[in-house]
Structures are given as C-alpha cells and as structure tokens.
C-alpha cells in the first residue's frame, strides 16, 4: 500500500496536469478570439467589408460561447461529489450520464453563431444551402456517433444506476 504522502503527491500531480490542460484549452479559445478581434479591428479601421465584420463578430461570439460553455461544464461536471448521501450521488450520476443533458443546449447559440459566421465565408465554393446542409449534416453525424458511443459505453451504466436507485427507493 502507498503511504499518504505518496497518494497526496499523486493527487496533486493529477490536479496540476488537469489544471494545465484546462488552461491550455482556454488559452486556445482566447487566442482564436483575439485573432477575430484583430480582424474586426482591421476591417473597421481600414473601412473594410461589412460582411467580413459580421462574419468575424459571429465567429468571435461563437468562440466566447464555446469557452464559457467549456468552463461551466468543467466546473459542474469535473468531479462527482462523493461526500453526498449515496442516493443523491446516484441520482446526479444518472443525470450526468444520460445521453441528452439539458445543459448541452447552452452550446446551441454557439453553433448557430458559428453557422451564421461561416455562411459568409467566400472561400468555400458551395451554395448557401449546400453549406447549411454540410454544417448541420456534420453536427447531426457527430450527435449520432456520440449516441452510438453512449449506447455501448454509458447505457449499461445508466441502467445499473437506475436499478440501484429503484432498489434504494423501494419500501422493502
């Protein structure tokens, strides 16, 4: 068995590496946001194209929304609270592992903003509707793949947890 000091060191090291990962992701979002901010500034100063400004503002807001969603989700779901009563912890775990979490809807504005911004992209030689089809097709495909992964990886867990909750709540 490891000593308490060894375990403490391991925990602190895990905490540090996870914190570094989070900081890295936030820095990534922040850098992209700064880039769009610069694009907006440049277009305004040089009296550039209004379409380019609208595109950059939409993508900037989408990035900020993604970043806020990431921070919120990370804070809320990073750790399960093991110090709560078993029944409460199980109910929260079931909610966390369900395929469609209402909290995920907070990402919807970011997706709409990103779609809106990208629809002004002139580099793509496809029509507006083809672009929409491609964008929402990719989102739907991602959601479907996520659902299939959930069925194999998390559904058994949700079933197990539900059985435990039913057993705890039964009067016998």
């Amino acid at each position: 068995m490891r000593t308490i000091d060894e375990v403490t060191l391991k925990i602190k090291s895990e905490d540090r590496s996870y914190a570094n990962l989070c900081i890295g992701i936030v820095i990534g979002y922040a850098l992209i946001s700064v880039l769009y901010l610069y694009m907006i500034y440049r277009e305004i100063v040089t009296g550039g194209d209004i379409i380019e400004i609208i595109k950059a503002v939409s993508l900037l807001l989408a990035m900020l929304n993604f970043m806020i969603f990431f921070l919120y989700y990370n804070k809320k779901y990073r750790y399960a609270d093991y110090s709560e009563p078993l029944l409460v912890m199980l109910k929260k775990a079931r909610k966390r592992y369900k395929p469609f979490n209402p909290d995920s809807l907070f990402i919807l504005p970011a997706l709409i903003l990103a779609d809106f911004g990208l629809s002004f992209e002139r580099g793509l030689s496809i029509s507006f509707w083809a672009g929409q089809l491609l964008f929402f097709g990719l989102i739907t495909l991602s959601a479907f793949v996520g659902y299939v992964i959930w069925i194999y990886k998390y559904k058994p867990l949700v079933v197990n947890i539900s059985e435990l909750i039913d057993e705890l709540e039964s009067g016998r």
Partner: peptide, 18 residues
Amino acid sequence: WIYRVAVNTCLTHAVKSN
C-alpha cells in the same frame, strides 16, 4: 462523512466495472 465517501467510491467502482 468518511463512510459516505468510502461507500460511494466503492459502489461507484462496482457499478462502473459492472
């Protein structure tokens, strides 16, 4: 509180490992 954390951890592992 200690028992809560211990029981929750052990049961969670049991549920996850099926």
